[in-house]
Amino acid sequence: MRQVEVGLGDRSYPIVIENGLLDRAGEVLAPYARSGRLIVVADDQVWVAQGPRLERSGLAIALVTIPAGEGSKSWNMLSRLVDDLLALEVERSDHVVALGGGMIGDLTGFAASIVKRGCNFVQVPTTLLAQVDSSVGGKTAINTPAGKNMVGTFHQPSAVLIDPSTLDTLDRRQLRAGYAEVVKYGLIGDLGFFDWCEEKALDLLAGDVDAQLQAIETSVRAKAAIVGEDERETSGRRALLNLGHTFGHAFEAEAGFSDRLLHGEGVAIGMALAFRFSAERGLCPAADADRVEAHLEAVGLPVRSDLGTPASLVAHMAHDKKKSSGRVPFILARGIGRAFVDPTIELAEVEDFLARWRGQS
């Protein structure tokens, strides 16, 4: 067992990482069950794959299933989930367990934050993306026509329980998409970890448990440290975690937040663009941008997309929730492992860059 703490004073919580953890669900989840009853919100596909492990726990499972897919991060599904939790007579002292990927964690955490003015929840992420990123840090949200994650709250979980064996049932595309959020930590501030990723990524994606454990622990330690310093993204430190996301979310919006482009795929394209944009501005060696693209392509992630036009992509960026004083802060880089926040970028400059990138000028 590996354990990392998110240090937030009296709201600190553990991240527990252990292969096969869900096979001890009775022991691990019992502290979060009231009178032996555990309220679980699960992706319907994840429940088929992982539910039997919880059902063998000996706990009485009160289950709410949510249709799989990013489309469930919506007002309608949030309303339905809240009604379901109220029908189960959830109490503020209860712990609602979110079993699934990032969609389930975001949706369940949001519902838990508003039901009866806030009840507890536990993250049990089952995708690589959720294990290394979205389950840690307390961001909850739904999507709206205005953009991705535009409505939500900060609501920290009571614990994050990570079992890499759940990745065995994940399809290859989802696993690769999750890997984008792993390598992000190297690109932000850890050149040594990026070096490790170049060496071990294919082992991780092939199911090497040691590589998965190392990647997950390194990622959550990095994120826990940043969240502990800047919980609500007020100092700018936590904003570094958005490397590639401003570009990536725009492509996701063009895809209608559908499986046409997975979140991690959008982030991969966005990180490649962030480094290429940085190189074009003379901030970052072009060789580093080339190296980032080469690695992403080597693991099967996209670095280009034909979705949208430069103008439509920038229009999506204009609605970025991090916008301040009319400007959207971009995460750029002075090199691999040297990301920084630049709040001075004009969207017109980004549109011109995207046009050149597309070969349209």
Rank of each mutant, 00 (worst) to 15 (best):
K223A: 06
S35W: 12
V16R: 15
T65F: 10
T153I: 06
Q174M: 14
E18D: 14
G36C: 12
I188E: 12
S57F: 03
R172D: 15
A279G: 01
Q212P: 02
L8D: 08
V160H: 08
K322C: 09
I345F: 14
I269R: 01
L29N: 04
K148L: 00
A33V: 13
A141K: 05
L129S: 06
A206F: 04
R117L: 09
R56W: 08
K139N: 01
A286Y: 04
G326S: 06
A274S: 15
P329R: 10
A33Q: 06
V151K: 12
E265D: 04
G266Q: 09
G337R: 01
M150D: 12
D190G: 10
G236F: 10
R176H: 00
G100P: 03
P329N: 05
A315T: 13
H155C: 11
G337K: 04
G186F: 13
A42Q: 04
A42P: 14
K116I: 07
E233G: 06
V4S: 02
L88T: 05
S235F: 09
T140S: 07
V122D: 13
T140W: 08
D133W: 05
D342P: 11
V227C: 02
E346Y: 11
L167R: 01
L54T: 04
G282D: 05
G9L: 03
R56A: 15
E198N: 10
T140M: 02
M150K: 14
W75C: 13
C119F: 05
R53V: 04
L204M: 13
R276D: 15
R2L: 15
S325D: 14
G138Q: 03
A339W: 07
H263S: 03
L204V: 13
E91Q: 15
G118L: 01
A180N: 01
M317T: 01
A141R: 07
L22K: 01
I162D: 03
K223H: 02
F247H: 04
L54P: 01
A268V: 15
L243N: 00
G256F: 06
S324C: 11
V64L: 11
G228L: 08
L8T: 00
P14N: 10
A146G: 13
R117Y: 08
G58Q: 03
E18H: 09
L243P: 00
L283Q: 04
A33Y: 08
L213T: 11
V341F: 14
E217I: 01
V303T: 15
L262I: 03
L175Y: 13
L301K: 03
D43R: 07
G20Q: 05
R281Q: 15
N143Y: 01
V341E: 12
V96P: 02
